[in-house]
Design a protein around this nucleic acid. Structure first.
Length: 578
RNA sequence: GCCGGUGUAGCUCAACAGGUAGAGCAGCUGACUUGUAAUCAGCAGGUUGUCCGUUCAAUUCGGAUCGCCGGCUCCA
């Protein structure tokens, strides 16, 4: 056993949870009317929810921090007490803690533990530190609204977030890490690297790709298309608007899916939020035999969804986005192998793009569902087996499947560790039914095909956003929108620089020439801040010997490099996608 | 959508307690022709997000609205 109070994940939780109690005590002493919500430890910190008529300001956070310091200084013991449910209820009701009383009501009968430090009492399972004086370093970070019990129909409380460490240095390092992460924010890099923009005049959640952003996207899309062809997918293309009739068949209309609707000559149309109905109609366009299956239809399908204004976030959450969408129609027997293949596809893609950190969730049958329990069981098992087949660690998210089928979600992290859903594999029993899809078996009987919805990147927008943060804007050569910057030292070297540029272009590289009448230092600095992988600086030496001076973005500098040798190096690097 | 914050030049930021806006970078012009992270000088650039209100006077105060930021809820 270690003496440290902060060296395992469990101990960190105890420590931070204790700090959240100290914060709650401080808040109660400064704002006695504040009612307590819940106050758990979370990854990298803690929070506590309060219901009070006072609105917390940044100044308040400082005051609360001061109070917390006092509490820590007075080294109050955390005392555990056990009591009955009724006693506990009485206690918290007498203190006007209606939220705690509600929590107690939902606890099972029996012993209930409460924790006290000084005059502060909290319903809590514990455990805690032994006394407040053990806390060495903490900081309150921000205040945000949060619905009581995460239910938007219930009151909104004020949540104060904070973090705590066992040393001042560790706290400072964490705060510094947050600052560094903010520099990798794709919204900041998107502007600095001239990748994309959003405009109030165009609308929230609607991104414009600039030439460099579009180049990056095309590179990814071209690669995606090739990979899909290799894996037996066929391309389809569908329109952006479709009559409401089809959204009634699919059910989006009745379930009030957040779509945009409008009218043309008295006929109502909806802008597609999904591509599936179109793909289904391609399938249904003629009779299908078991010999045709599986059919895999792929589309870079641009969809629009009315996302609520408060959820929009750079490229990571937008209202118009392009999914790398495909629908696989197969026989029940083919489901297993199709899922294995899709998972393999998704992981191969993530690996290619350098992602090694992601979370995988298997979402099972929700309360409201269509299809038979047997089919759900079968599909869920197919998903499980595919995960096991790839020896993948995953978590089960019980009841979080879509109403039409279970799914596997792969979640990617942004620079700050926030989680965004990327690739998804969903088994669907609903739409084949609603659209009355069939195929003819050997026995000349019609059967219902199984449908699998899947993306391997998620959406181009979200993927590019996460990818930008992942690389901090320094994309590997094959993805870089500008791969090489040629920098002539003086005007007399521009001709040679242009020859070099042509040579690179002929070989399929994305190259620019900085022929401005600026200093070499400035041009290098510029290319450097643009995170361009290679700079070719050319002056008298290079022009006379037909060579290059190559500087890479790590700052390494090589002289007298032969052009053809450099070209083949570049080609190798691109083909390796490193 | 909800809670809180915020909105000044293309970008990053100034402008004491209301007195009608300033810098650096970027841009343009000129000079310099440069050897591995910012050459110098000049010029230009804003009805302070928008609308309404309070006031002799609003970037500054109040309201509404739009956008953005942090959360919550919801999702690729």
């Amino acid at each position: 056993m270690s003496e440290s109070i902060f060296d395992t994940p469990e101990k960190k939780i105890i420590y931070r949870h204790s700090v959240s109690h100290i914060m709650a005590q401080a808040v109660k002493s400064l704002f006695p009317d504040a009612k307590l919500g819940i106050g758990p430890a979370i990854e990298n910190g803690f929070y506590y929810d309060f219901d009070t008529t006072h609105t917390f300001t940044p100044d308040d956070l400082e005051k609360i921090e001061k109070k917390m310091q006092e509490i820590i200084k007075s080294n109050l013991a955390f005392n555990r007490k056990e009591t009955s449910k009724e006693e506990a209820r009485k206690l918290f009701e007498s203190r006007n803690e209606i939220y705690k009383a509600e929590l107690i009501d939902e606890l099972e009968d029996g012993v209930i533990s409460i924790y006290e430090q000084g005059d502060f009492v909290d319903l809590c399972r514990g455990p805690h530190l032994s006394s407040t004086g053990e806390v060495k370093a903490f900081k309150l970070l921000n205040v945000a609204g949060a619905y009581w019990r995460g239910d938007e129909k219930r009151p909104m409380l004020q949540r104060i977030y904070g973090t705590a460490f066992d040393t001042k240095e560790a706290l400072d390092n964490y705060l510094k890490m947050l600052e560094e992460a903010a520099k990798r924010d794709h919204r900041k890099l998107g502007r600095e690297l001239d990748l994309f923009s959003v405009h109030e005049a165009i609308g929230a959640g609607l991104a414009l790709y600039h030439p460099k952003g579009a180049t990056l996207r095309f590179t990814i899309e071209n690669f995606l298309k090739d990979e899909h062809l290799k894996r037996g997918y066929q391309f389809v293309i569908s329109p952006h608007i479709m009559k409401s009739d089809i959204w009634k068949i699919s059910g989006h209309y009745q379930m009030e899916y957040p779509m945009y609707f409008f009218e043309i000559e008295g006929q109502e149309y909806g802008i597609k939020p999904m591509n599936c109905p179109a793909h289904i109609l391609v399938y249904k366009n003629e009779p299908r035999s078991y010999r045709d299956l599986p059919m895999r239809f792929f589309e870079l399908g641009t969809v629009y969804r009315h996302e609520r204004s408060g959820v929009l976030h750079g490229l990571l959450r937008v209202r118009g986005f392009t999914q790398d969408d495909a629908h696989i129609f197969c026989t029940p027997e083919q489901v297993d192998s199709e899922i294995v293949n899709v998972l393999d596809f998704a992981f191969t893609m993530l690996k290619t793009f350098g992602f090694d950190e992601y979370e995988i969730m298997l979402s099972t049958r929700p309360e409201k569902y269509v299809g038979t329990p047997e089919n759900w069981e079968k599909a869920t098992n197919a998903l499980k087996q595919a995960l096991d087949h790839h020896k993948i660690n995953y978590e089960v998210d019980p009841g979080e499947g879509v109403f039409y089928g279970p799914k596997i979600d792969i979640k990617l992290k942004d620079a700050l560790g926030r989680i965004w859903q990327g690739p998804t594999i969903q088994v669907d029993f609903n739409l084949p039914e609603r659209f009355d899809m069939v195929y003819w078996e050997k026995d000349n009987i019609q059967y219902r095909p199984v449908m699998i919805h899947r993306t391997v990147l998620g959406s181009m927008e979200r993927f590019i956003g996460v990818l930008t943060e992942h690389y901090g804007g320094a994309f590997p050569l094959w993805l870089s929108p500008v791969q090489i910057m040629v920098i002539p030292i003086a005007d007399r070297h521009i001709d040679y620089a242009n020859q070099i540029v042509e040579k690179f272009k002929e070989n399929g590289f994305k190259v620019e020439c900085d022929a401005r009448a600026e200093s070499v230092n400035k041009k290098i600095r510029n290319a450097q801040t643009q995170k361009i992988p290679y700079m070719c600086i050319v002056g008298d030496n290079e022009a006379s010997s037909q060579t290059l001076a190559v500087r890479d973005r790590s700052g390494k500098d090589r002289r007298d490099v032969k052009i053809d040798e450099f070209l083949s190096e570049l080609q190798k690097e691109v083909s390796e996608k490193k």
